[in-house]
Design a binder for these strands. Structure first.
Length: 809
RNA sequence: GCCGAUGUGGCGAAAUAGGCAGACGCAAGGGACUUAAAAUCCCUCGGUGGCAACACCGUGCCGGUUCGAGUCCGGCCAUCGGCACCA
């Protein structure tokens, strides 16, 4: 078969006849398969795209054959930095390059032969989409979940924009790898922290890889403890510290405030003023990465002020130190050098007191200082003898009774910084009025102007567009006002696209609530693991926020998630231009066809693992499909036919049904490699059967039909062609997936292994209807076994039905 | 440091529930057909020893539980991913 030519034919046929169109009237039987949409870069589809989209499509096709009404949309995450950077380099406008790239990619995606529903396509850079992205911003704002504040933020000097916490990797920009610096800027945030607890607990309800859930848990970083109030010794005020180890409070010999703590300026004494100011200046100059380095010395300065430890009334020194972060907890900690490694280092360096208040619970545990494990309280007055678990609550409760403490929870998760000083994104729909302050512009969309000077200089490109910025009046008071010059992080666009897919042409609303409630959540979401703490977290947040506003009525957007593995270059490195190891699917697809390529990706890797690319086996897959074709056609060819149903027939039938059973299960689990292995076994069995001179045509042909059907999701064009050539009506791609016959899997006799003391010795044929006791009797009376035993006495016989018999001597 | 994975032939990888390790392939070697090549078909293919039947060893390392461990338990080592002065 000329696979390439055949693929063109069927691809056209399916699309023209809308063979596997999602039936909008049968929503109750829907199955929503979604792959993370792609960024329309100038480069062609690479092997990774095929791996993700091609095999997810096989899963979707399998669901169709299992009778599901499958919805599998595709679109483009079209805003973003790369197009803008490309524009800066080449002068080609981002809109032009993006729309062109999308056209090219659409064609390439069609060539995979996937069932994408193009009527539901989304391009996030078009006004009819970003209008609703802006609408979401407005809704969040109205519900107090979007706000603007001045804060130290991550700034990428190369991309000339701020970044979200999630986009900073090891202190470097996720995109361009430049070192990120801290800047104090006024920026827009989404209050994702309001959902911290639900984002955490919701993880228990969803079928996601444990690894990914663990990463989100980690990222959210819940920690329970208490806030404890220290009064200043001179009575001029107080401050709180956060601790998870209130049981160590009696060991507190000093307290440390973050250098940015608002109290620092007020409490510093005359003598210490110069030192403190000097220290704060130094800290401000050091960049975040250096400051957060664990290896760094625990520097700090005494403020000259004293505070009172509320549990025992002891007077302790108040220091400042940059190991205390202003942005976590209360920006102040109690110093307990005896039971905290950092405090210990700090105390030793600055000559502060060390006072042990926890003993190891069991005497054989290393009890040296600092002792940071849980243990038993000592030197702690009435609390002596209490365990850490009890004490960390009891101490706070005692303080709460006198208004000096309360139990609290802290999260590592920070609010999501969404404004970007870049051009190619959705404009933030806010107008700044000299009288009313910030006012939402609900006259959407706020159009992104085309004629913009987007060369980066650290200010937003839109800020330099006179008309965009100034040609506006305040919606409230009508005064001359200005627009917000920033655009939204592209992760905002992608945080709700799975909702728009089901209702992409709705001009009245972002989506119809009733429809979305029926179509969501996504039943199977497939995409890379690298989005664990970004897109996958943001999407969950937006879903929950929209739910609380009443726009939808479910809690989680993605019921079940699968991460495909990464296909590396042949050298084992991540594919990249700089490594020069990028493998293009094109030459393989044009030589062997899309089905062969897809089957090869299916067979060559464990789906969730991926691995280095190697094209040695692709020829073998091509040969295998040729082999399958030969025997399918042979089954439908001329030969001496009979109704016989002997040993050979039973064996062929057994392999046939075993293949159906296994492959059915394998598709469900994205275990494409083993599915192909089982199908290869079936082809081998057919080849063996074909050697018979007289064959049972009914069985042979049914087997051929079943082979085509189980193979169909992985090789749709190939099987469709053979389906037609063997005289079937209708399209195989929408036929029913075969069911297996349990009876066919069972044979009347089975060969069992005989072991002596767990050592394999011989084999014996056993009737499968025998009981364990009968098998035991049979094996002991077997001539061969008798001979091997040579009269030795048998202590015990262990029979594992259908597998082995272990004789203990 | 903490969290999560992973570790099996020359290679990609299999192994529902503790039961014949290496399914299914690739590569390699041998053979049939062929004037020859391609294609196709058949055989061998974890290691060591042996003519052989067979024996011993073998799933990162060391122990344990069990009639029986790739799988369970304890302790290590290595690689990869994530988090990290988070109080």
């Amino acid at each position: 078969m000329d696979k390439v030519a055949v693929e063109k034919k069927w691809n056209k046929f399916w699309q023209e006849n809308k063979v596997y169109k999602f039936d909008e009237k049968d929503v109750d039987n829907k199955y929503y398969v979604l792959e993370m949409f792609s960024y329309p870069s100038g480069a062609k589809l690479h092997v990774g795209h095929w791996y993700n989209y091609g095999l997810s499509d096989s899963f979707a096709r399998y669901q169709i054959m299992k009778g599901k009404n499958v919805f599998q949309p595709m679109g483009f995450d079209a805003f973003g930095l790369p197009a803008e950077n490309y524009a800066i380099k080449t002068g080609i406008h981002p809109q032009d390059s993006t729309l062109h790239n999308i056209e090219v990619m659409e064609q390439q995606l069609r060539n995979i032969g996937a069932i994408f529903d193009w009527d539901h396509e989304i391009k996030t850079c078009l006004p009819d989409y970003y209008k609703w992205t802006q609408w979401i911003f407005c809704e969040l704002y109205k519900h107090g979940l979007a706000y603007r504040k001045k804060a130290p933020v991550n700034w990428c000097p190369s991309c000339n924009t701020v970044l979200a916490n999630e986009q900073v990797v090891d202190g470097h920009c996720e995109r361009c790898d430049s070192q990120v610096i801290k800047k104090d800027l006024t920026q827009w945030f989404f209050k994702i922290t309001a959902y911290a607890d639900e984002l955490l607990s919701g993880l228990d309800k969803i079928d996601w890889p444990e690894k990914t859930k663990a990463m989100q848990r980690n990222w959210i970083g819940k920690s329970t403890g208490g806030e404890i109030t220290f009064d200043l010794a001179d009575g001029s005020g107080s401050f709180n510290v956060f601790t998870t180890r209130a049981d160590t409070l009696f060991g507190c010999t000093y307290v440390v405030l973050a250098p940015e703590h608002p109290l620092v300026g007020k409490i510093t004494t005359e003598e210490q003023l110069a030192a403190v100011q000097n220290y704060c200046d130094e800290v401000a100059k050091t960049d975040e990465i250096e400051r957060l380095s664990t290896a760094k010395d625990k520097t700090g300065v005494f403020t000259g002020a004293y505070a009172i430890n509320p549990i025992n009334g002891c007077k302790v020194e108040v220091w400042i130190g940059d190991y205390v972060l202003a942005s976590y907890g209360t920006g102040a900690v109690m110093g307990v050098p005896s039971h905290d490694a950092r405090d210990y280092k700090f105390a030793v360096k600055h000559g502060l007191g060390i006072n042990r208040v926890i003993k190891a619970a069991s005497p054989d545990v290393d009890d040296s200082l600092p002792y940071c494990e849980y243990g038993v309280m000592v030197n702690s007055g009435e609390f002596d003898g209490m365990s850490t678990e009890q004490g960390r609550v009891a101490v706070v409760e005692k303080l709460a009774a006198i208004g000096k403490g309360k139990l609290t929870t802290n999260y590592r998760l920070r609010d999501w910084l969404v404004s970007r000083q870049r051009y190619w994104g959705a404009p933030i729909p806010v107008i700044h009025c000299p009288h009313c302050g910030e006012v939402l512009d609900e006259n959407l969309p706020v159009m992104l102007p085309y004629d913009v000077e987007f060369k980066p200089d650290g200010t937003s490109p839109l800020a330099k567009h006179e008309k965009f910025i100034h040609d506006v009046v305040c919606p409230k008071c009508g005064a001359k006002a200005t627009r917000d010059p920033d655009t939204l992080d592209t992760f905002v666009c992608s945080s709700w696209y799975y909702l728009r897919y089901v209702d992409p042409k709705n001009a009245e609303k972002p989506f119809d609530t009733e429809l979305v409630d029926k179509m969501l959540p996504v039943d199977k979401y497939v995409g890379g693991a690298e989005h664990a703490c970004m897109h996958l977290l943001y999407a969950r947040f937006i879903t929950k926020a929209l739910r609380d506003m009443g726009y939808l009525h479910f809690d989680e957007p993605f019921k079940s998630l699968v991460h495909q593995g990464v296909i590396l270059g042949p050298d084992g490195n991540r594919m990249s231009k700089s490594h020069g190891n990028v493998v293009s699917p094109d030459e393989f697809v044009s030589a062997y066809g899309a089905d062969v390529f897809r089957c090869y990706l299916a067979f060559g890797f464990k789906y969730t693992e991926g691995g280095p690319w190697n094209d040695d086996g692709i020829k073998a897959i091509n040969k295998w499909l040729d082999r399958a074709e030969r025997y399918v056609l042979a089954a439908y060819g001329d030969y001496a036919s009979c109704d016989e149903y002997g040993v050979d027939e039973k064996e062929l039938n057994r392999v046939r049904h075993n293949t159906i059973k296994s492959v059915d299960n394998d598709y469900n689990e994205f275990s494409f490699n083993t599915a192909v292995a089982r199908m290869m076994e079936l082809v081998n069995a057919m080849s063996k059967y074909d050697n018979k001179t007289v064959k049972n045509a009914k069985l042979y042909r049914e087997t051929a039909d079943d082979l085509l059907k189980v193979l169909c999701p992985l090789a749709p064009h190939f099987t469709e062609e053979l389906w037609q050539q063997t005289g079937h009506n209708g399209s195989i791609v929408v036929s029913e997936f075969p069911t297996y016959d349990e009876k066919a899997l069972k044979t009347s006799e089975i060969e069992m292994l005989v072991q002596f003391n767990s050592r394999p010795k011989t084999r014996i044929m056993v009737d499968t209807s025998l009981t364990v006791a009968q098998i035991e009797k049979l094996v002991l009376s077997d001539v061969k076994v008798q001979e091997l035993l040579g009269g030795a006495s048998v202590k015990k016989v262990i029979v594992i039905p259908n597998r082995l018999i272990n004789i203990i001597l």
